[in-house]
């Protein structure tokens, strides 16, 4: 449809390059565009979680004791172990990007499967954590019939803490589940041979996304789990 321009160097060959979309001039422009786009997407993700962290901060300021009482209901050991699991998944993700850069199709798939493995461990642990909260009457979902009945409800703000606990970790887990879907897509993409040393933005952007999810947890862990570690128990701690 469009004849190549003589005016712009490098324009001529790009229709022969199967990795280059029609509207880009060269591979570098394409790759930088993809990276920029992904970072802009992460900026919006950042603001999305930021809104929730903002609300968290305000309420923690209102209810320091309630926040502490709520935090003491969480299992710090499990939280810390899960943090390490997620960090490992970030490492394997970085290794997947490295494999893509070096053009190792096998390496990409291996590392992504490892990442998914660590991610699943994290989610399974999360499931058991949620279940424990359910058993202890720490679910604040009144319209679902899950009333907040634990003794900590006597402490002002403790119930709100759990609203935020479930809201924030839930949103984080949802991002991981979406990530799993994207992983499957990346694997298919890789199997089709579309990931090469010249063009691997898909794997790179997947990595950026996964690392972002990791960063969210890096903040959630101290802000949710570590509040009441050094004080005496406020009320009714189970662990």
């Amino acid at each position: 449809m469009v004849s190549s321009s003589a005016a712009v160097a490098g324009h001529d060959d790009h229709h022969h390059n199967p990795h280059l979309a029609h509207h880009f001039e060269d591979l570098q422009q394409q790759r930088e565009s993809h990276a920029l786009g992904m970072w802009l997407f992460l900026a919006q993700e950042f603001m999305f979680f930021g809104g929730m962290f903002g609300a968290y901060t305000i309420y923690r300021y209102f209810y320091p004791v309630g926040w502490m009482a709520g935090s003491q209901q969480l299992n710090v050991t499990i939280g810390a172990a899960n943090t390490v699991v997620l960090l490992c998944s970030s490492f394997t993700m970085a290794m997947a990007v490295r494999a893509a850069q070096l053009g190792s199709k096998k390496g990409v798939i291996q590392q992504i499967l490892l990442t998914m493995f660590f991610g699943s461990v994290f989610l399974v642990v999360k499931y058991f954590e949620y279940y424990e909260k359910f058993e202890h009457g720490l679910m604040p979902f009144s319209t679902l019939g899950l009333e907040f009945t634990n003794v900590v409800k006597e402490v002002p703000g403790a119930q709100l803490f759990f609203s935020f606990y479930f809201g924030m970790t839930g949103m984080h887990a949802l991002h991981m589940v979406i990530g799993f879907g994207l992983f499957v897509w990346v694997i298919i993409h890789t199997l089709q041979g579309k990931v090469t040393p010249e063009k691997h933005s898909v794997v790179e952007n997947m990595g950026l996304y996964w690392h972002f999810v990791d960063i969210v947890w890096i903040f959630l862990f101290p802000l949710l789990y570590l509040l009441g570690l050094n004080g005496e128990p406020v009320i009714g701690v189970h662990h």
Partner: peptide, 23 residues
């Protein structure tokens, strides 16, 4: 930079109304 904040705000509103979590 702005839209995600209203997205999360409306999400919290929906959670509060739908699940009763009372943010």
């Amino acid at each position: 930079l702005g839209t995600p904040v209203i997205a999360v705000t409306l999400l919290l509103l929906m959670l509060e109304r739908g699940l009763g979590i009372g943010i």
